[in-house]
Design a protein around this nucleic acid. Structure first.
Lengths: 115, 115
DNA sequence: GGATCATTCAACCAATTGGTTGAAAATCTG
DNA sequence: CAGATTTTCAACCAATTGGTTGAATGATCC
């Protein structure tokens, strides 16, 4: 797993905000304009524009200008990369599920008895 | 996919920093102390301590105090949740657009009616 | 008891975030 | 052309981030 750290930073950062996750959800249903993305978020145009820019910098959104409208669409690659990053660790915890669960349980037990 | 938004925020935020992802990687190989996590990151103890706290607030790390050492271990649940969130959108790029749209609709409806 | 080790805490700092407003720049419409 | 629409830009603001230091707390070692 060769991660371009800054790129991964930007993707996870983009996803760390509920408004932006909402935009991703909306975009997953199809292309839409910045205005379309602003409306359900109940925020100023400028704020939505900034969020879109964050998604763009993360490579998750593509923008195509058509007249006065900016039409956004979802670009799947970065999401897939992030998913792969997590998947790597998912493998870890499914491989070591027993050991992990045991460790966590022991921790709790130890905590309960005041250690 | 019923997301507790603030919790998801915290997990993705925790993952948006390369140092913290390094800590997750290290922890995936086994428990270690805060000091163990600080060393490869080449930063002050205090800084590492703050990063661990971020991971803890995201529910990704458990801490057990043993004498003067704080021993950290990985808690898999939040990582799995984040992975599921992404997996949901993975449908988008696995060329089944119609099914994704349907899934989004159902999920959104579920959310609207209060989980 | 005193030194040392592992860790947190508190204060501080610069940079970034997520939002606002008001104005500007294009584009469409009558 | 004048107005309305869509969007960005610039300035500002409060809160948060990621780091630093120096001191405080709590084990452990001799």
């Amino acid at each position: 797993m060769v991660e371009d750290s800054e790129k991964v930073d930007r993707v996870f950062h983009a996803l760390s905000n509920g408004t932006r996750r909402g935009m991703v959800r909306q975009l997953s249903r199809g292309e839409c304009t910045v205005g379309d993305l602003a409306r359900p978020a109940d925020m100023s145009f400028a704020a939505a524009s900034k969020h879109v820019k964050v998604l763009e910098r993360a490579g998750m959104v593509n923008r195509r200008v058509k007249g006065r409208q900016h039409i956004c669409s979802l670009r799947p690659d970065p999401l897939r990369d992030a998913s792969e990053w997590l998947g790597f660790y998912e493998k870890f915890w499914s491989d070591n599920l027993e050991r992990l669960a045991a460790a966590v349980e022991t921790d709790y037990a130890r905590e309960q008895e005041g250690r």
